[in-house]
Design a protein around this nucleic acid. Sequence first.
DNA 1: TTGAAAGCGTTACCAT
DNA 2: ATGGTAACGCTTTCAA
Lengths: 337, 337
Amino acid sequence: MTSIHDVAKAAGVSISTVSYALSGNRPVSENTRSRIEAAVRELGYQPNAGARMLAGRRTHIFALTEPLRPDTHAPTHMAFVLATSVAARKRGYDILLLTDEQASAGMSRVTASDLVDAVLVLDVAPDDERVAIARSIRTPTIFIGIPDDSEGLHCVDLDFHGAGSLAVDRLVHAGHRSIALIGQASLAYQRSNFPRRLLNGFEARAEERGVDHSFSASGETVTDPRAVRRAVETALDDGASALVVHAADDVHEIALAVLAERGLAVGTDISVLSAGASFDTANLSAAVDTIPLIPQLSCDLAVDLAVRSLEESLTPSVHLIPPEYREVGSVAPPRLG
Amino acid sequence: MTSIHDVAKAAGVSISTVSYALSGNRPVSENTRSRIEAAVRELGYQPNAGARMLAGRRTHIFALTEPLRPDTHAPTHMAFVLATSVAARKRGYDILLLTDEQASAGMSRVTASDLVDAVLVLDVAPDDERVAIARSIRTPTIFIGIPDDSEGLHCVDLDFHGAGSLAVDRLVHAGHRSIALIGQASLAYQRSNFPRRLLNGFEARAEERGVDHSFSASGETVTDPRAVRRAVETALDDGASALVVHAADDVHEIALAVLAERGLAVGTDISVLSAGASFDTANLSAAVDTIPLIPQLSCDLAVDLAVRSLEESLTPSVHLIPPEYREVGSVAPPRLG
DNA sequence: TTGAAAGCGTTACCAT
DNA sequence: ATGGTAACGCTTTCAA
């Protein structure tokens, strides 16, 4: 393998100058720098990772811990992994994957061996066992998601509570007085707490505004088409003029199908709003206003916090990303019954 | 951080003895070994990763390259990532994730910097650009999947051709003379070549056995419920007495629903066989015989090849995993029309 | 069976 | 603006 010595020799400088030229930690004359860069390109030099870790203070690797349980919603999850990986790479970091039992055990292991500079935690459970581990290690740890007890932790997530409130606000502002929320499968309300945060925001604001509201899960453990149909039909029968959907794409489709069957046109006869969806709602069979969950936003921020906490001492806190509203015309004043 | 010196001091031995005791590269007296182990436990010692990489010849990390394209089937993919990660960990390796553009560029980068001991390639395309990279690097590379040109590469995959043949054999043996294959969405036949390998095996054996056969994709880019319905209905109308399904779970469900609507009982009025599925077919609404795609089998073998190629020079070759048949009673002799 | 010490390829401090 | 060199914490050869 070609080493820093080869580059130094080729450029006619010392190895320290090469090191500084590459790291930018010391000014290097333009002339020297370009000779070094030429040598680097010519030789295809890449610094040895092990040596860099040992001598420097950085491994340039982040651990990404994700249990990958059987009930994990794969598409959403994949979006977060991809977003994390892209965000990390933008800052010069690689991602070391910790799954399954290693999601927890690996955290202690790779931090104790100084394999990673920081840990990013995905798929956070309310009583996540990785919380205790995070508190026991010295390596900066960022949660993408919020456990019940977030004391002393760095957390990043969409403001689901705010998203629930915003949904109600928009619908009430359009004139709706009876709103139904179709949520996730019941199991999701135990596995994570973001579904409940959205629900809480929805209910609190609906109470405040004094509008009728209802909530139904979209199944027990996974999407149950019959449960979704029933939920939508009941909501309509009870006079709801607007639907908020916080669930996977298939739930949206089923709901839209029921509306279509009833001859209700979205954005005219009935208002529909998707909240907290990480998939592209533009692919749904009808255009719907969306308060999206954007993985790249959370993951960019998480990586940014990780990088910054390597340079300064950050005060732990929960970072809530403000919900944003994307209007495409699926919300209109209610049809008078 | 606690280092090997601390352990050596605590155990009253030299650091080399500690190193040997932990690596097992040299016999160490039982007495000494236990004192060292006690010290390791007491101090919570973990060898520094960077130092280990630099001094030793191993990083104990494998790169896992997966593009994660938007059309990747997330659940299947997740199963392979999990299986790879588990397999690697069993052999003492961690997984470094290379996604997106880094799936290719990262391969050169992390191998040139000696960050990984081997590369595992997932989601292999027929004309995968990672093939050229694999040929250009010295780091052992194992493909989980088979590109069109596999010359000089280590590849591991289910024998999809054999799976297609086996499906036909079982059905013909049961007496069927007209068989329909419901395959993946058309796009999948361009993105990868395993769907076609199964199709080829199916068609070749059906020709050999002289039975009627047909093939339909389950959509254009993704599952299209109407396309699946049409395919099943057409097959039935054309007299097919058995269905082979090589597709995602939703396609299975739609097909089973059509059969149910027609009042056809699976395993009695109609035979159904699932081939190349990586999800648990036991969760389908009807029990079906299965020739499964088992990620753990491919990934264990891939990791094994990776580990072995670090110790000896392996001759590159394509390893096809023999298909296995799981019978639950969905295949029976055809009902006489 | 054990120890001493020479690297491994960087980074960063101390000189010049 | 640049160079020399001591760490960094381990593995492994060479000695005993």
